[in-house]
Simulated scan of single mutants.
Amino acid sequence: MIRLHKWKLLAVALITNITIVISLAVGEIKAWEHIDWLDIVGEGGVSLLAALWLGFTLNSRPNGPVTNLLTLGLGLIFVGTFQDLLDEVIAIDKGLFLSGGLESTLLPAGLTVLTFGLYHWHKEQLLFTEQRRKREQVFREYRLQDGLTGLGDARFLRRQLALALKHASNHQQPLALVLLDIDHFDATNRRFGHAEGDRLLQELTEIILLNLRRTDLLCRYAGDRFAVVLPNTGELMAGEIAAQLSRAIEHFAYKTAQQGETLYQSISTGTCTAEEYSAEAMIERATTRLLQAKDSKARLQVVAA
Rank of each mutant, 00 (worst) to 15 (best):
Q265C: 08
T233E: 07
C272V: 11
A222H: 13
E284Y: 00
L230N: 02
L209K: 15
D295H: 14
L300P: 02
T273D: 03
Q244S: 14
S296Q: 13
S246P: 07
Y277P: 01
E284C: 01
K294F: 02
S278M: 00
T269S: 04
L210H: 13
Q259L: 12
L290Y: 06
L212F: 07
L300R: 11
Q301N: 12
Q265P: 08
R220L: 11
E240T: 10
C219Y: 06
L236Y: 12
Y277H: 01
A242W: 02
Q259M: 09
E240H: 13
A298D: 09
G270K: 01
M282V: 00
A222P: 11
T288C: 03
Q292K: 13
D295F: 12
E280F: 00
A227D: 04
D224P: 06
L245A: 02
S278C: 00
M282R: 03
T271R: 02
A286Y: 05
A257Q: 12
G270I: 00
L290F: 00
D216Q: 06
I241P: 10
P231N: 01
A227C: 13
A279C: 01
A298K: 10
R289H: 04
G223Q: 15
Q259A: 14
A242N: 04
I207T: 14
G223R: 05
F252C: 08
S268T: 10
L291H: 10
S246D: 12
G223E: 01
M237E: 14
T262E: 15
